[in-house]
């Protein structure tokens, strides 16, 4: 039996006339890794700020561990939120941050934090403001992992982290999660890098949830069909089209829904190329509709 950790219904946040989050409904189940994905300004950070009690919703119901998060210390103690640009007191160095962390996180593992400091080669004695962008991100990542908070949010945690450091983050996250399962929400633009780590996806666009599905269902659920225009059009005739591009007599159409063996044989007979659509490309198709609007090739699935 899985327990529901977060339950949001009709959750809304407005800033003046701008609706950042527009009546969204979703739940987060215990001990899963979620991907909260979407473009800049889609409302991801606003959702996480409401879930962690940093801002108040204008409307809707929100329960985190069964209660409203804001002003409930027993709920807040179980949360960890790592922001894109985490702020620390000026006089702090990384050692101070790690020393203070157990005051906020009851599951804090100091030995794990030490190991991560070593992995990320983080200088402990240097003032926070003297750290490079990547080192500053490493501080946040270390706090987020070693907190072992039952509900941990990483909001674009790795600005400035190089590819090696990001891989260390993914590997340590996965290893530690298998030993200490907890609910993790990862918000990122580097979708293809994290795609395989995620169990469930929430894709948000213009303050609304566009997709709320298990990652395994989404992976390989869209295919790009390319070839001669007539052949492509006949192949995609009765399918849900989510993207369409063309150049002269050639067409490249992205369709939703899995292809079975018979479809693949038929595509081969028509001389069509089938290419899998990565999660990142799929999100571009789903959330980038307005980018291509106005071109004659534009068509969005109903």
């Amino acid at each position: 039996m899985t327990r529901t950790v977060v339950r949001a219904s009709g959750l809304t946040k407005r800033y003046g006339s701008f609706t950042a989050v527009d009546a969204v409904d979703f739940t987060l189940e215990e001990n899963r890794i979620y991907g909260l994905l979407g473009r800049n300004g889609a409302g991801k950070t606003t959702v996480m700020q409401m879930l962690t009690g940093q801002i108040f919703p204008n409307d809707g119901e929100l329960e985190v561990f069964g209660r409203t998060p804001a002003e409930h210390a027993d709920v807040l103690r179980r949360l960890c939120f790592i922001a894109e640009s985490q702020r620390y007191p000026d006089a702090f160095n990384a050692a101070h941050v790690l020393k203070a962390a157990p005051w906020f996180f009851e599951n804090w593992d100091a030995a794990f934090a030490d190991r991560l400091v070593h992995d990320f080669r983080l200088p402990l004695k240097r003032y926070i403001k003297k750290l490079s962008r990547g080192q500053l991100s490493a501080v946040g990542v270390i706090v987020g992992l070693a907190s072992r908070a039952p509900l941990t949010f990483f909001d674009e945690p790795y600005l400035g982290l190089d590819a090696v450091a990001r891989q260390i983050f993914y590997d340590r996250l996965l290893e530690d999660y298998t030993e200490h399962p907890r609910t993790i929400v990862l918000s990122t633009h580097l979708i293809d890098e994290v795609a395989n780590l995620l169990e469930h996806l929430l894709i948000i666009d213009q303050g609304r949830i566009l997709l709320d599905r298990d990652a395994d269902e989404v992976r390989g659920s869209a295919t790009t069909v390319a070839g001669g225009r007539a052949a492509v059009e006949s192949f995609v005739a009765d399918r849900a089209v989510i993207g369409r591009e063309g150049l002269g007599g050639l067409a490249s159409v992205t369709i939703d829904g899995r292809l079975d063996r018979a479809d693949r044989v038929r595509a081969a007979e028509l001389g069509l190329e089938l290419a899998p659509v990565s999660l990142q490309q799929l999100i571009v198709h789903l959330t980038g509709a307005d980018l291509r609007a106005g071109t004659t090739e534009q068509e969005v699935a109903a």
Binding site: E175, Y177, T178, N196, L198, E199, D216
Partner: peptide, 17 residues
């Protein structure tokens, strides 16, 4: 399941499936 997950760098729920 956990060995598959860490080796292939995938979510353990996926490995379990």
């Amino acid at each position: 399941t956990n060995e598959f997950a860490t080796f292939f760098r995938i979510n353990p729920a996926t490995a379990l499936k």
